[in-house]
């Protein structure tokens, strides 16, 4: 007798758990006129739950040593490498050619490694000790902005997604991600990679759903500190920029499509979601003579 295949239920990822949307709704994206599965149609309440999870995880994640975050990002790449077969089939199911899917997976793994390497270098390269005129030790260093909303690229469900998440979490931010609406499969499978990669629950939260419905809830939320927007609708951009004013969210827009390009690997994407902090500390000047040796 032929064995009946078990089909996978795609759920969302909040606080390290995989709930269904609280709304109970679903949608079915089509590829070549075939539905690829029943996907959670997340609601405003899901966004709010995810922000709570991201906020509670943020200080712990930022409080880890940079070297530790570096290892955890590397660990994501290790686990992803081991699950490439699943991504390969999902990317193909979402319409990619075999060769392109392989290329996308390779680039995704390497991108994680690239940003893993920055965790314990970014403040070293971009921080400074400032030669102020008074007798003070004065230094500036970057700290993570906080909770970042990510509107992930629509056209690149794995590499695009990871290119947006990696620089945001590298410095100690946590995030709430709205996945590609029409190609959501890889994003949920990537959540399963995160869940088994030593990434604390709540650091990355991934929702699937309708951009039109959810965008304003990202934009309006007073506990979201920044938004990384990866699509190209001028209306959406204007809407986000307007909504962001209430709590002065930082809005970063990156609409370029070719995620295989090396320009997606640079530390400035990390700095976009960091704040500069300057500390002043007095230096006693009682030894006027200095040392003669």
């Amino acid at each position: 007798m032929e064995r009946l295949e078990i089909l996978k239920t795609y759920k969302i990822y909040i606080g390290g758990a995989f709930p269904r949307t609280e709304s109970g709704r679903y949608y079915a994206p089509f590829v070549n006129k075939t539905p690829i599965g029943n996907i959670c149609l997340s609601s405003r309440k899901d966004v709010r739950n995810a922000v709570v999870a991201a906020r509670s995880a943020q200080s712990g994640w930022a409080g880890k040593s940079a070297a530790n975050r570096s290892q955890i990002l590397y660990r994501i790449a290790e686990i992803l490498e081991g699950r490439r077969a699943q991504f390969q089939s999902e990317l193909e199911l979402q319409g990619s050619s075999k060769a392109n899917a392989t290329k996308e997976i390779n680039a995704t793994i390497d991108r994680l490694i690239y940003f893993a390497g920055w965790c314990d270098k970014v403040t070293q390269v971009f921080g400074s000790v400032n030669p102020v005129a008074s007798s003070h030790f004065n230094f500036s260093t970057q700290e993570p902005t906080g909770v970042v909303g990510i509107i992930a690229p629509e056209d690149s469900s794995l590499l695009g997604l990871v290119s947006f998440i990696a620089p945001v979490i590298a410095s100690g931010n946590t995030c709430v991600v709205l996945a590609s609406e029409n190609m959501p499969l890889c994003s949920i499978t990537f959540a399963e990679v995160l869940a088994t990669s030593d990434v604390p629950g709540g650091v990355v939260n991934i929702l699937t759903g309708n951009t039109k419905e959810l965008l304003e809830h990202f934009g309006k939320h007073m506990d979201v500190n920044a938004i990384f927007y990866g699509r190209s609708s001028d209306d959406e951009i204007k809407k986000l920029q307007t909504l962001a004013i209430d709590n002065l969210k930082r809005i970063k827009i990156k609409s370029e499509g070719d995620y295989l390009n090396d320009k997606w690997e640079n530390p400035y994407l990390i700095l976009d979601f960091m704040e500069v902090k300057t500390t002043w500390h007095p230096i006693e000047a009682i030894s006027a003579t200095g040392s003669v040796y």
Binding site: S70, A116, G117, D120, K121
Partner: peptide
């Protein structure tokens, strides 16, 4: 681990 990240 640290130096690996510097290579690129």
């Amino acid at each position: 681990f640290y130096h690996a990240g510097w290579a690129d």
